[in-house]
Design a binder for these strands. Sequence first.
DNA 1: TCATTTTTGTTGACCGGTTCACTTGATACA
DNA 2: TGTATCAAGTGAACCGGTCAACAAAAATGA
Lengths: 342, 342
Amino acid sequence: MEKKVTIRDVAAYTGVSRTTVSNIVNGINKTSEETKEKVLKAIKELNYQPDFTAISLSKKKSNIIGVVIPTFDDSLAPIFRENHYYTEILGGMEYVFKNHNYDLFISGMMNPIEFKNWIQKRNLDGLIFLGLFPESVYNEIKTLDIPIVLIDNYEKHGVNYPNIRIDDELGGYIATKHLIDRGHKRISFMGHDLKTISVDEKRLSGYIKALQEANLSLNEDLLFDGTGSFYEVGFQMGLKLLELGDKATAIFATSDILAVGIIKALLEHGKKVPKDYSIVGFDDLVISRYSIPSLTTISQNVFNKGVLSAQTILNIIEHGTSDPVSINLPIELIVRKSTSFL
Amino acid sequence: MEKKVTIRDVAAYTGVSRTTVSNIVNGINKTSEETKEKVLKAIKELNYQPDFTAISLSKKKSNIIGVVIPTFDDSLAPIFRENHYYTEILGGMEYVFKNHNYDLFISGMMNPIEFKNWIQKRNLDGLIFLGLFPESVYNEIKTLDIPIVLIDNYEKHGVNYPNIRIDDELGGYIATKHLIDRGHKRISFMGHDLKTISVDEKRLSGYIKALQEANLSLNEDLLFDGTGSFYEVGFQMGLKLLELGDKATAIFATSDILAVGIIKALLEHGKKVPKDYSIVGFDDLVISRYSIPSLTTISQNVFNKGVLSAQTILNIIEHGTSDPVSINLPIELIVRKSTSFL
DNA sequence: TCATTTTTGTTGACCGGTTCACTTGATACA
DNA sequence: TGTATCAAGTGAACCGGTCAACAAAAATGA
């Protein structure tokens, strides 16, 4: 077992004080070129690596960012298993943080108190909320004044946190408009956790707006909402739609994963996509290119969403730029094979 | 900004020494019932939470486990984006660690030195290798004597680390046998990173064994290997197979994701699955139930793999049971709709 | 030349815990 | 009664850094 090299070893080796070594390591210019060189050489030779734990303790800065995702039972398992939207975002964050020497804790939701304790115990430098949480969580965190960035959030929390999102209402509008333009008049809306996931509410608004604009009536029977496994929820909604007979000819699903599940149900019952049902998904996940048929979808650069939120929080942490720049990322309709003219 | 409650506050509040508080918190029985009660009450009242950073520093124990995944450019993004096999395993780990008060760092591979520094800088309590790494990595880590658990590993590293895996050769054998039993004689093998991912090598062995047993000749033209995005690699392999004409009637793909890509290519060129090509996947990821057609696949309980590796490393850390219990998890053929009789 | 400022560097307390060596008072033993 | 044993608890050093206050030497200025 090798002995760890500490700042004291470097100091002793070069005959200089700990503070001097510390200053050099941290780029604080208070040292002559001569000594600086000597110390840097020693650091190389001894392979000295500053201990993050010690730094955390004295600086109260851990170089760890917490990412929190709302979950039902505090377990991230379902997220990792099939919420490719979230994992792609995580990929974007990881990419940025890795290059800035930050590490990442990913956590499902806990109760507000545990949550706060976690932040304090771990000396987290920042928190990214990936999705929507109960108001009590924000209230608890607020007292800690730790940098926070929100993703996909539409609530006000008394504090003006930067918010990375897209125009979800516009997304819903474009998706629905596309179907209307293709001649569809009876369009079903299928969402997920409408009451708790605000983006789907907005997308529903966009859907309604598009219908109204085209003078199409809103049929409540065609509005679906579900909770749980995305694939399975989509599958079940597909079945329910089939039970309704031929009330609809098109579907706007608020997620590509949902769409895959829906298509599965339809095809299993002898329907064709897009011949019998045109479907628009959302997110443009990788799967949407390889699903059968490939999905027409609203592309939001999911990876980029992760990248931007990471950069935003790093800016706050390192330069204190806390002007809450909320960013609306661009979206785009990608037409593939799951939609056709009626 | 609230002030953090420290062990000194608790000590002062109860008129007892820090050591005593520390002992009580850590369950070291050196205190009278009376004092213990008094202190526990104070802890509740003040909401004292021991600071993990401080504990890390003095105990040299961080309650953080590092999970490392081999990546090409040190970025986990591709993994998070489409390697659902890895993310499902991560889900299993997270589930266990969360309940034991451990947090998780997930990292792509770095060079061996950086890697080692990371472990030291962060005082990691253990390391899980998810996949196969260059020998130099193990050599570097070996000098640190930190608990290590391997997943899907077939190499010996001079040290006997616990290894969680399945019998991959058997998996390849069962998959291929299934196709042979269905009357197929010209079966293609499609793998991923054969030189660096040892599980695929083993699965290839199983494939060869099954062929030999059935007195079928091995056709090198039908052996495919690729690198990069799983979906895309599968897609490209599908195209290549088509170029070969009707040399094969069945495919064994070493991953469900690969299989989805393959099927996509075949269907886009007018072929039918399973009518023209029967396909067996591997892993039984969620997607295999919702793909079109649903995939016949070798089921390994991926989630459980994560759970077991997490439990194993916790055992080593907390009870020192370092008897390297390597576990071979059971596998099972799941017959769905992507295979049929010739 | 002497006072002042600047450069370069050091010392020691501190971050919030743990741990080893030690004290004190009570109990047991003989 | 004297000594050994034990339970309950304390003090101070320590983990590996940072930082404010201070000090010595060098440079500046008048």
